[in-house]
Design a binder for these strands. Structure first.
Lengths: 143, 143
DNA sequence: CTCACTGCAAACTATTTGCATCGTA
DNA sequence: TACGATGCAAATAGTTTGCAGTGAG
């Protein structure tokens, strides 16, 4: 239940208009801490504003990403997920049950670990660590 | 121009038949060090074996990934890329020109850097570091 | 000789776009 | 009021699948 007034302001300052649809989409994003797909966002938005089309959700997400308020994730599942651009972090994805957890870590640490060649100047990263979560690792032989 | 005999053997040992199509696809993958999309692989395969369909390319790629001979990459560009599963590495992607470079690093180092909670057991990772390559970083103000 | 593999085309999923209408600034 | 934003439906891109015919083992 985070306040999304400053988000709206930032968005407006980039030249975008504040419409009821965009307000509803930002509200949903602000209220959910985790990564959601466009479809999931559309579902949740529809509960409070049934007339928001999926196309508008996609358009708004694209704009929010462009403005830098949203991160677009590719967890390797064929669907894009979106989450608020707050603290930098990677994701642990369980190869068996699909559960996703966050792991904190910033770009500088990563850049220090990896031998980044010549003059490449890193800005952000996208990290997915695949493996098995504590529950699934116990039942690995059970197939 | 790597030898792909052992690749074929491994593939066969998993119960797959060696067909001319699969041979051609493996040849292309073995000959190209970098990440390719399914479409690009199909193009190259078509040069030596014009009758290989795109569907067969997709099917074979999926099988190679399942067997562990191939990595599937998501560089955040909406297309999946494939590359041989050799040394573990991440990718530097230039946000301006799109150039992709490899950075070496293994899962253990990564797992040590990130505070991986409870019993999560990492197997592999997928890392994309976004930023600007040495050429583009110089011309950043030029828009 | 059998059953896995193939090509083709159609189906599907995720996402984008064209256009007439609507409503924010 | 003007022009950016919207909903709808159609278009697109990438990938998967059903099926009848083919060929590897």
């Amino acid at each position: 239940m985070r306040d999304c007034r400053e988000l709206l302001d930032q968005f407006r300052q980039h030249g975008y208009r504040i419409t009821p649809q965009r307000r509803a989409i930002l509200r949903v994003l602000a209220d959910s801490a985790c990564h959601l797909t466009a479809e999931q966002i559309h579902e949740r938005v529809s509960q409070s504003a049934p007339d928001v089309s999926l196309a508008t959700v996609y358009n708004t997400l694209r704009e929010l990403v462009a403005v830098g308020q949203l991160y677009e994730l590719d967890l390797g599942l064929g669907v894009r997920c979106y989450e608020f651009a707050s603290q930098e972090h990677g994701h642990l994805v369980c190869s068996k049950c699909g559960k996703v957890e966050d792991v904190l870590g910033n770009t500088e640490e990563l850049a220090a670990l990896f031998p980044i060649s010549d003059g490449f100047c890193p800005t952000t990263y996208s990290l997915v660590i695949h493996g098995y979560c504590s529950q699934c690792v116990q039942s690995l032989g059970d197939d």
